[in-house]
Design a protein around this nucleic acid. Structure first.
Length: 489
RNA sequence: GGCGGCAUAGCCAAGUGGCUAAGGCAGCGGUCUGCAAAACCGUUAUUCUCCGGUUCAAAUCCGGAUGCCGCCUCCA
């Protein structure tokens, strides 16, 4: 089944046709390094991480470029507020971004260029636009003349006249057309600057992506991605800049991820509901956040809330429980191979089917929600095999398990979840919950020991009282032949 | 004002012309267990916001209504 991608430009799912057979060039707009990453950044990162992972698993050689905007008004503002330099601010937030991404199992892109390292590329692009009469300098600023670019608005489906009618554009006497946007910005006193043909200044926001995507991926590459808010004006402007220079559209497929809402409201600083990634991962296992996002289609909005993360945690726990069961069963002694029984092949066939459906779901515009459905079905099948299938000899089960393992490994590789050893996961998850709820582990251990003593005496009512006491704290006990373990509900 | 999106069970969420409308969470009944937990089995939408239309056939296409949301200014 061919790869399909929903292209924002045509608003249709299209069959993906790479420029070079077997290769993919992909550019995704990264962060402006002036603050820590929030859950919205996390979604964009996770979405395109899965795109990257899936295309690779399908055999494409993917060159994935994601930039850092390390010079910008907001960075300068923050530097001024802290009495430090812009470079220091950018460096700090890039470092924090990288930490957050690592926590979320987001693979590092192939190339992560910075705007400040591509001044020459940007300046030469602006010069080219000026030479073509599409860019015009005014007092040290340089603007892009949208009237000189006939297909302006082609991505977002807007007409220049309609946008002018909207009239919610900033008033700037220097611009010939209110929709013209800045390519180069004259630096004010005490602001960082770079030398240019138009004097000392810094680049406008949009030009860096045009320059860097072209530098690493060429005039036209395969996929350009970002959050849906970037469709207009950022990506519209990128197209205008690049295409005005090269005569070619920069990217063939434009992908945009939907927004994260917070308790059904838009996330914004004024509402005070911006959730930083590093805060969330103190409350929930990072894979719970990832799973939460992957349970919806990437173009739909998702609603972040305690409830939704708690549900994602439960779903994640379910998968890890299956993985743990598999791991423990695998550890059991393998008997001498018997003659294969039909049941073995029936299970293996079903597992392989789920694997195919998983891949097919991702082929269809990266439908992670559907793919996860296959993962859960596989988990249930394995649980069933291991706990309810009485007739099958252990050696037969082992054969099925080996297939199941390799398939879960595939699920894990592509979705970037279930990457821990189950025991490590349960420890990490419990630790998070213990901290979050302020539980006293020593006290819990003490109560469990008391209950064990009561159980040894067959004092069931005392044992049950202790269970209830722990239950009130959110502590759930699990008795097994080898002892009692506990988790937080 | 302009452009666009969404509406599926108690909740979250796939499915975009035709098999029994995935999956997760929650609930209920059962198996297992000293009791539990986990797991498994069964169960929970004759129906996809409403009204019309196209079709042999629609949650899925078309028109309309209602409701919610996003972008048009920095924004993932």
């Amino acid at each position: 089944m061919p790869q399909k991608i929903f292209n924002t430009r045509t608003r249709k799912k299209e069959i993906f046709q790479p420029i070079r057979e077997g290769e993919v060039g992909m550019y995704v707009c990264g962060i402006t390094a002036y603050d820590v990453c929030h859950v919205g950044h996390a979604r964009a990162a996770v979405v395109f991480d899965v795109v990257y992972r899936h295309l690779r698993s399908r055999g494409y050689k993917v060159t994935y470029v994601k930039n850092y905007t390390d010079i910008d008004d907001k960075i300068i503002d923050r530097a001024n507020a802290e009495g430090t330099g812009f470079a220091e601010i950018a460096e700090r937030y890039i470092r924090l971004h990288d930490e957050d991404m690592a926590a979320l199992n987001v693979l590092p892109p192939t190339i992560t260029p910075k705007a400040t390292e591509h001044m020459a590329d940007m300046i030469s692009m602006i010069s080219a636009l000026e030479a073509k009469g599409i860019a015009y300098p005014v007092d040290g600023d340089v603007f892009f003349a949208v009237n000189h670019f006939p297909v302006y608005g082609g991505l977002s489906g807007r007409l220049l006249d309609d946008m002018l009618a909207g009239a919610r554009v900033d008033v700037n006497d220097k611009k010939k057309n209110p929709l013209d946007f800045v390519l180069w910005k004259k630096s004010k006193k005490d602001e960082p600057f770079w030398e240019s043909p138009w004097g000392q200044g810094r680049p406008g926001w949009h030009i860096e992506c045009s320059a860097m995507s072209r530098r690493y991926l060429g005039d036209t590459f395969d996929i350009h991605g970002g959050g849906e808010d970037l469709v207009f004006p950022h990506h519209e402007n990128e197209i205008a800049q690049t295409q005005a220079v090269t005569g070619k559209s920069p990217a063939n497929y434009w992908m945009h991820n939907g927004f994260v809402k917070i308790n059904a409201e838009k996330m914004s600083k004024s509402l005070g509901n911006v959730f930083p990634v590093r805060e969330i991962v103190r409350q929930y296992h990072p894979e719970a956040l990832r799973l939460f996002m992957l349970q919806s289609h990437y173009r739909s909005p998702v609603d972040y809330s305690d409830t939704s993360l708690t549900e994602a945690r439960a779903a994640l726990t379910r998968c890890y429980a299956a993985l743990k069961l598999m791991k423990d069963a695998r550890g059991a002694a393998i008997e001498a191979a018997a003659t294969p029984l039909p049941a073995r092949f029936s299970y293996i066939r079903k597992i392989n089917e789920l694997n195919d459906r998983f891949d097919a779901a991702l082929d269809d515009d990266f439908n992670t929600a559907q793919a996860l459905g296959c993962v859960f079905e596989a988990a249930r099948m394995i649980n069933n095999l291991l706990t309810a299938e009485k007739k099958m000899p252990v050696s037969e089960k082992q054969c099925v398990l080996e297939t199941a393992f390799s398939i879960f490994e595939h699920f894990s590789d592509v979705l970037g979840v279930f990457q821990s050893d189950p025991d490590v996961f349960f420890d990490a998850d419990r630790e998070i919950e213990v901290k979050k709820r302020g539980l006293d582990e020593e006290k819990i251990a003490h109560l469990i020991a008391q209950r064990q003593a009561a159980r040894a005496d067959k004092d069931w009512s005392r044992a049950d009282d202790i269970r209830k006491e722990l239950d009130v704290m959110g502590v759930v006990l699990k008795d097994s032949p080898v002892g009692t373990t506990w988790s937080v509900e």
